[in-house]
Simulated assay, not measured.
Amino acid sequence: MSSTQIVTFNNARLAYGRRVLWQDLNLQVAPGEFLAVLGPNGSGKTSFINTMLGTTALDSGQVRIDGQPVRRGSSAVGLIPQQRPFGDNVPLRARDLVALGVDGTKLGIRLARKSVAAKVDELLELVGASGYANRPVSDLSGGEQQRLRAAQALAGDPRVLLCDEPLLSLDLHHQQAISQVIHQQAVQRGSAVIFVTHEINPILPYVDRVLYLAEGRFHIGTVDEVMQSHVLSELYGAPVEVLRVNERIVVVAGTANRALPPDGHEHPEVPEDHEKHGGK
């Protein structure tokens, strides 16, 4: 195994009962690389993220982060989750939420409040959230809250940044802003970015490679190598046409002659929230 790889999957297999999500997966993700993970609902995209978080166990094979076996709570891993609104009247300011990412795992009284505050200010500026640093998080829009989640994930300067549908439910402006922040982490800090999404177009300028999961199979390659009609047709076992329209990728189900998002979103299988925890 090359020491330059941050994420390494060796002969990885994951299944739910008799349904295999993938097997014989060999994948290496290098520093600064932006890997997009696509596939229909139930193809195992979130499970793929969870194997690197240590919350979902492989059936066989191995996954390593920075050369070490995966473990829960590793400082080498940062996570930007899906956008979910906070409840009303949450008594927490934006900067307090980000501060939890800076020293939230430490017990006792903060002994270096100035250094924590300085780090929080740096992170807020990085994600473009300085303007509402002192506002309650429950008063912020979904896009503003998602910027704070990005700041939290970046607080530990992670070696790998896992992004689980972070653009879901965001408008185009906030999609672009969050995507740029994530890309900066790869370029400026050399983090490996693994970005699960149902829509590749907002991140298309940044993607180095694609891992496409479908029907228990997968394909890995550049965008041009993977987003091809014959590749997706083989994965789905049905006619699929991939079109380029105004620098966007559109996937069309050949049998129905209707446009689908680039992940083939209308092919649900195993629910994504049906995760495996702690073993086979």
Rank of each mutant, 00 (worst) to 15 (best):
T4M: 10
F9I: 09
N11R: 08
L14N: 03
L14W: 05
A15C: 03
Y16N: 07
G17V: 04
R19C: 01
V20W: 00
V20Y: 02
L21Q: 03
W22D: 00
P31V: 01
G32L: 10
G32T: 06
E33L: 01
V37T: 02
P40V: 05
S43E: 03
T46P: 00
F48H: 04
G54F: 11
T55Y: 12
T55D: 10
S60Y: 06
S60H: 09
S60G: 14
Q62I: 01
Q62S: 15
V63A: 03
D66L: 03
G67Y: 09
P69E: 11
P69Q: 08
V70W: 02
R72F: 06
G73P: 05
S75I: 11
Q83C: 13
Q83Y: 15
Q83S: 15
P85L: 10
P85D: 14
P91Y: 09
R95A: 01
D96Q: 15
L97G: 04
V98A: 09
A99F: 03
L100T: 06
G101T: 04
T105H: 14
T105V: 11
L107I: 14
L107G: 12
G108F: 04
I109H: 12
K114E: 14
K114S: 15
S115D: 15
S115H: 15
V116W: 02
A117P: 09
A117H: 14
L123A: 12
V127Q: 08
S130R: 14
G131W: 12
G131L: 11
A133R: 11
A133G: 14
N134H: 15
N134C: 11
N134Q: 14
V137M: 08
S138T: 10
S141M: 00
Q145T: 08
Q146G: 08
R149M: 11
A155R: 08
P158I: 09
P158M: 06
P158E: 07
R159F: 04
L161V: 13
E165Y: 05
D171L: 07
D171W: 08
H173S: 14
H173Q: 13
Q176W: 08
A177Y: 02
S179H: 10
Q180Y: 00
Q180L: 01
V181K: 05
I182F: 05
H183V: 07
Q185C: 12
Q185D: 11
V187F: 07
G190E: 06
S191E: 00
V193T: 03
F195I: 11
I200G: 02
L204R: 13
P205W: 07
R209Q: 09
Y212I: 09
L213N: 02
A214N: 02
H219K: 14
I220S: 04
G221H: 05
V223D: 05
V223H: 04
D224Y: 06
E225T: 12
M227H: 05
H230N: 09
H230Q: 12
V231Y: 05
V231G: 04
V231F: 07
L232T: 03
L235F: 03
A238F: 05
V242H: 12
R244K: 12
R248N: 13
I249W: 00
I249D: 03
V251L: 13
V251I: 13
N257H: 15
N257A: 14
R258S: 10
R258I: 15
A259N: 04
L260F: 13
P262N: 07
G264W: 01
H265K: 10
V270S: 02
V270N: 01
D273R: 07
H274Q: 11
K276W: 01
H277Q: 13
G278C: 00
G279P: 01
K280L: 09
